[in-house]
Design a protein around this nucleic acid. Structure first.
Lengths: 328, 328
DNA sequence: TTGAAATACGTTAGCGCTAACGTAAACTTC
DNA sequence: GAAGTTTACGTTAGCGCTAACGTATTTCAA
């Protein structure tokens, strides 16, 4: 390759990277030779030689709902503009998978790692601490992140929703979500939501845990469970997300239960489906694109050594839909 | 590191990789030292030394709808079982982005590359041909793939749906999808669908192209366009996918148009939402998980040099819902 | 005209691993 | 117990790049 263009490999290296120190003429001769010889520079060797990569590893729990797709899209385009390459994996809400991902990314000498949520195995934390890698935690806000954090206070968000519904006169809330230990953010929202009612001497009267299906079908199954199994009456159901709530809504309609007259439904995320529903779901809109973009920017800053805010809390917006109404 | 355990670096290499040639005792001494010294083997150096990576690059158009998430999930877990690492990117239906991705993956000396659809830039094809990389094309079936292919015949799928609806008595179909040149598979389905009607002396009487929003909202907007703008009457609308169809259905309901009595709706993919709808959408179920799993298996086979089928065509299944009915 | 500065290269010495081969000791086998 | 075989290492020579530092050659100011 170098021989073909009649130059040293160092000039080839310079020409291929576009750094200065090569005359225009030599450069084009090298590029021609590269084309003719089908030469493709090895990023692997380059990364080894420079000891710095432009890799960022992003770990999200799932791509099932569009939440993490939204975050990831925003993130990826921001990284791209900075010449960072994004590698990506899903944990399926399994911390062992997250650990394995972190290990792989460290082995590849990634410059940055993005994790979802604030709950990680001790070994994950240890590896991150030791490795020379910038760490960003997203989705869940924390006052004391490993390094950087952009996210929501899910407990507060659940609480805010609980307060609003309480003020509307709801008294006997139920919850439909995944089994405990699965999605911690969902649990935080549920906890905050419940707290709002407990403060007023009320309580969460029913819960249904749906295993495996956390989308439309899960909501419908959970709602059916709640309605079929004996237990205290409830006037409100809080769902993991909008898709589950829509599933629940369809189950109610199928059974002739009038929403919101007989039963209120509320959810979280403000997913796209809400834009087309004639009866929009009462929900909290989570600013996914903002999380992705800000997060990516912060991580890039950290990698480049720019001092900045460590932790950013973004606020979801409650959107009152037509699946709830004042109870008086 | 090697010194600490009192061995040569070669023994460390063997111990860390778990290959034989180290006594149990020495191995554990090395692992202890590694732990103490926080040693993490570099995959970069490893890949350079062995000149073979376990990287597979997967490119999909979008994560907006869950189709490619489904494919990707199935694929990733299959690759994982073979010790392959999956790197992933979305093209947003932009072939230039696909080209850039292929270039990056080749620079990283990936063992395999997965592309969606059969349409690639000449430079992409050239790079793939020259590089020592196995190539799998998914989603769209082709008789003559670059190397391997698992997918659907979208034209045939559209045609099959057209035939079924024709037999039910529909005569004036319309189509709602993205602008031409954006999603080629959608165009193929539309072409096949149209062909079924043209064969009987009928034609596609209306189309609406929605820019940007190819999910719920796009369907609703497209349907509103179709209904608001003057033009021939239509008795049927074929949508890009189920989510758009649901958006369209909601628009119809909002306007008091009875589906399927006054208007039939059909779509493609068989997405999860259909499981909970009281009025399920007539659609073709696309076997996403099968595509992902089979595709991954084939690519692994090719990487390991196992001879096999080059091209596999999978069949979507038409699921008659309640958004269409016989017109007599 | 001359010394300093800039430009356009080339040379050297790794980056952190592993394949392939070498070697000494322990273990077989008949 | 001599010769072959196995085991458990170590040594050597790269993999394909790039940082850092040469060394000619040209450019330029005074």
């Amino acid at each position: 390759m170098a021989a073909r263009a009649g130059v040293s490999i160092m000039s080839v290296s310079r020409a291929m990277r576009g750094v200065e120190g090569v005359s225009t003429e030599t450069r084009s001769r090298i590029l021609d030779a590269a084309e003719a010889l089908r030469y493709s520079p090895s990023s692997v060797a380059g990364a080894l030689a420079t000891a710095n990569s432009s890799l960022v590893g992003v770990s999200v729990p799932t791509l099932q709902d569009s939440v993490f797709s939204d975050i990831f899209s925003a993130m990826r385009s921001t990284f791209e503009r900075s010449g960072m390459q994004t590698v990506f994996d899903t944990t399926e809400y399994d911390n062992a998978r997250e650990e394995a991902f972190v290990e792989r990314m460290i082995a590849w000498r990634a410059a940055g790692i993005v994790l979802s949520g604030g709950h990680h195995t001790p070994r994950t934390r240890r590896m991150l601490r030791r490795a020379n890698v910038s760490v960003l935690e997203i989705w869940s806000w924390s006052a004391d992140p490993i390094e950087l954090c952009v996210g929501l206070d899910h407990e507060a968000s659940g609480y805010a929703m609980g307060r609003r519904l309480l003020e509307m006169g709801y008294q006997s809330p139920a919850y439909i979500g995944p089994q405990p230990g699965y999605d911690r953010r969902a649990e935080q929202r549920c906890r905050g939501f419940t707290r709002a009612f407990v403060e007023q001497g009320l309580s969460l009267v029913r819960q249904a845990w749906v295993t495996g299906k956390h989308s439309f079908a899960g909501g419908r199954i959970g709602m059916a469970n709640l309605l079929d199994k004996p237990g205290p009456a409830f006037d409100l159901v809080y769902f993991l997300n909008d898709h589950m709530a829509f599933g629940g809504l369809e189950e109610c309609r199928a059974r002739g239960i009038k929403v919101p007259d007989q039963l209120g439904l509320a959810a979280f995320n403000g997913l796209q489906i809400n834009d087309v529903l004639r009866q929009p779901i009462t929900t909290s809109y989570s600013p996914r694109a903002d999380i992705g973009e800000q997060g990516a920017r912060m991580l890039i800053g950290a990698i480049k050594g720019v001092a900045q805010e460590r932790s950013v809390k973004l606020e979801p917006t409650i959107m009152m839909g037509e699946t709830t109404k004042a109870r008086w």
